[in-house]
Amino acid sequence: MIVHLTGPDGRSEAVRGAAGDRLLDLAQAYDFPLEGTCGGQMACSTCHVIVDPADHARLPAPSEEEEDMLDFAAGAVATSRLACQIVLDESLDGLRVRVPAGARDARR
């Protein structure tokens, strides 16, 4: 399946993922600046992404814990999510996601 990622620098790429892949891992594999400091344990907001409003309803609702972490994300909006909590399945083919301005990746 394809996910359309846009970085804070405007770079846009259609990346290929498989059912069961976490968006965080996929974005990192394609060198998008998502740090994921906590390793995807939902203990930080360094994998904050903004889902295209047209696609947001295709995602399962965020948990209360994810919503709490998003309170710490700089520039969070109504369609913000944590990439570590988005697990791909066939219903998400074509998903459009943007890494917000100010995102950084200390892994580099």
Rank of each mutant, 00 (worst) to 15 (best):
A29G: 09
A76F: 04
D52W: 11
A106F: 10
D31A: 15
A73K: 09
P100E: 01
T37M: 06
E66R: 02
A18L: 10
R16I: 02
G10L: 09
Q41H: 13
A19I: 08
A74M: 07
S91H: 10
E67Y: 00
T37I: 04
P100V: 06
Q28P: 11
G75C: 08
S12K: 11
R16W: 02
S80V: 07
L59W: 09
E67H: 00
R16G: 01
V3Q: 06
L24V: 08
G94I: 10
D52L: 12
E35K: 15
A78E: 08
E66M: 02
R16Q: 06
A74G: 12
L24Q: 11
R58N: 05
F72I: 06
C84F: 06
E35M: 15
L92R: 03
D9W: 03
Y30I: 06
A103D: 07
I50L: 14
C44A: 00
R22T: 05
G7E: 01
Q28G: 14
L70T: 03
D89E: 03
D25V: 01
T6L: 04
A29K: 07
H48C: 14
L82A: 09
L5D: 04
A106P: 08
A14S: 13
V15L: 02
F72S: 07
G17R: 00
T79K: 13
G10V: 05
V77P: 04
A19H: 10
P60Q: 02
G75T: 08
R107P: 06
E67S: 02
E64Y: 00
P53M: 14
A73Q: 05
C44F: 00
T79Q: 09
R96N: 10
A83L: 12
G102H: 13
A27I: 06
V49I: 13
L70G: 03
S91I: 02
V87R: 05
R81V: 03
Q85D: 01
V15G: 10
G20P: 03
A18V: 11
D31Y: 08
F32E: 09
A43Q: 15
H48L: 12
F32N: 14
C44S: 01
G102W: 13
G10H: 08
V3S: 10
A14V: 08
A18C: 07
M42S: 14
Y30C: 11
D93C: 07
S80Q: 12
V97Y: 11
Q85T: 01
V97P: 09
A73N: 06
P8F: 03
P60W: 02
G10K: 10
E13C: 14
E90G: 13
V99W: 13
E13K: 15
H48E: 03
H48V: 11
R81N: 09
S45H: 05
E67K: 04
R81Y: 06
